[in-house]
Amino acid sequence: MSKQNRAFRELGPLVALIALGVFTAILNPRFLSIYNLQTLGKQAAIFGIMAIGETFVIMSGGGSIDLSPGSMVALIGIVSTYMIVHGIPVFIAILVSLGLSILIGLWHGFFVNKLKVPAFIITLGTLTIARGMAAVITKGWPIVGLPKNFVMIAQGDVVGFPIPVIILFTVLLITHFVLEKTVYGKHLRATGGNEVAARFSGVKVEKVRYIAFVVSAFLSGLVGIIVAARLSQGQPGVGGTYELYAIASAVIGGTSLSGGEGSALGAVIGAGIISLLWNALVMLNVSTYWHNVIIGAVIVIAVTLDILRKKSLARSK
């Protein structure tokens, strides 16, 4: 991918996002109310942060994919709130929960790198196990009675910007820098692009993948905390199928499922599109029976259009 090409990589999905926004705003001006934009921002933060993690994993190539984010959201949400209601200080509970997320990422990396278990399988295992553990810990009951300083993580705002949105932008800034400006980012692209050649060039392919899985698990855990704070409770059932939205967001944002290509910004734009749809379909009073049909169609159209656009770009070169 040439330099010029890369600068415009997120253009397609960005245009789609803006077009959807403008369309909705024209039909219902209340779409642009501060309160609604905050709602939208919080939702986009949830999907966006997960999609960034997913982007790291998918970029690392070799068929890597992370199916665990949705269940991780439930598990880490439960673990953190469980600790908090059992008297552990909020700060420490969060640190421990994120630590657990990192361990789960390492666990994925270990199976993929050392035991050569396909990422699909090991993360599918986590999808079931994490969801199951959340149910085991809670017996299905929501964990309630969370202190204000925890709930603030998702319900507070700074000059109108919801804290989840601020977290999203922080994560985006850091990951964008890592992917575009650091040796790790380059090695990640190389590993995904051609694992053998990367290894032959002295890239520590295993280490690169370990980090990708850890980033994804860590960010899913972070989202778990945000979601728990947003709902004011730990819910064992939350986040089902979120992994699919995370994968779809990453792909809409230009991540190639075969690895090597992808961007954090694109993933966030992809997440923005899906979140905007969730919001807009309600704002536009579309019958709820149609919601999933439309979301699915938009995902297919967005990805197809982008692939066609890239093809025509490549041809005109």
């Binding site: 709602t39 709902l231 819910q235 199928t241």
Partner: peptide, 16 residues
């Protein structure tokens, strides 16, 4: 049956 989506939708409905 997703609690987070239920919240999002309730917020959106209040807006709409």
């Amino acid at each position: 049956e997703d609690g987070a989506r239920a919240l999002s939708m309730a917020e959106s409905a209040l807006n709409a």
